[in-house]
Amino acid sequence: MNTKSIDEAWEQLLDQLEALVGKRPADLNAVLFLIGVQELGKGPRRFSKEAKQDLMHIAVCRILSQSGYYTFDGYDNDGWPQWTMTKQIPHADLLSQETFLKEHVISYFQSELV
């Protein structure tokens, strides 16, 4: 995907999420949080700041698992998903990293919202 098509697909995804959850996610972090809550599978509830960071980490692991960067190991004693990095994520500048993550988020939702 080129940057323009990623940007267009990203805007469409934000529109879909707004229709689904009733509020348009503000940014990539908000979308990662939603994915983390979905992957945790315990439904909506209040999370501490640390738990929100953990949820975003779960989301990053999940979306990057599509490209083989992480492998799902199972759940810990508290029911939180555990992942192992299986290959190095390419180093890039901040904008390229964001585009890389957005592309994976778009792919995640294309497979999940079917």
Rank of each mutant, 00 (worst) to 15 (best):
M1A: 14
M1P: 06
N2Q: 09
N2E: 09
T3F: 00
T3R: 03
T3W: 00
K4E: 15
K4G: 02
S5A: 13
I6Y: 00
I6S: 06
I6T: 13
I6W: 01
I6K: 00
I6H: 03
D7K: 06
D7F: 09
E8S: 05
E8I: 06
E8A: 02
W10Q: 14
E11T: 12
L13I: 09
L14H: 04
L14M: 09
D15Q: 12
Q16C: 03
Q16N: 04
Q16R: 14
L17F: 10
L17R: 08
E18P: 01
L20H: 07
L20E: 13
V21I: 15
V21G: 10
G22I: 06
K23L: 04
R24N: 12
R24A: 01
R24F: 02
P25E: 07
A26N: 11
N29A: 10
N29F: 07
N29L: 09
A30G: 14
A30E: 11
A30H: 01
V31F: 03
L32C: 12
F33R: 11
F33T: 14
I35T: 11
G36V: 09
V37Y: 11
V37Q: 13
Q38P: 00
E39N: 05
L40T: 14
L40N: 15
G41C: 04
G41L: 01
K42M: 14
G43A: 06
G43H: 06
G43L: 04
P44C: 00
R45D: 15
R45M: 10
R46P: 11
R46W: 09
S48R: 05
S48Q: 07
K49C: 13
K49E: 13
K49L: 14
K49H: 12
E50N: 13
K52V: 05
K52L: 08
K52D: 08
Q53G: 15
D54E: 11
D54Q: 11
L55Q: 02
L55N: 03
M56Y: 08
M56G: 15
M56H: 02
H57Y: 03
I58T: 11
I58F: 03
I58D: 12
I58K: 00
A59S: 03
A59L: 08
V60H: 12
V60T: 14
C61K: 00
I63P: 00
I63K: 01
I63A: 07
I63L: 06
S65F: 02
S65D: 15
S65I: 03
Q66K: 05
Q66M: 11
Q66Y: 06
G68I: 10
G68F: 08
Y69F: 12
Y69P: 00
T71L: 07
F72N: 09
D73W: 01
G74Q: 06
Y75I: 07
Y75C: 08
N77A: 15
N77V: 04
D78Y: 06
D78E: 13
G79C: 11
G79Q: 05
Q82K: 05
Q82I: 05
W83N: 05
T84M: 03
T86L: 00
T86E: 05
K87C: 09
Q88V: 10
Q88G: 14
Q88I: 07
I89D: 14
A92C: 09
L94F: 13
L94D: 13
Q97A: 12
E98I: 11
E98N: 15
F100H: 13
F100V: 12
L101A: 01
E103H: 07
H104D: 05
H104P: 04
V105F: 01
I106L: 09
S107P: 10
S107E: 15
F109W: 14
Q110A: 04
L113D: 09
V114G: 15
V114I: 02
V114C: 10
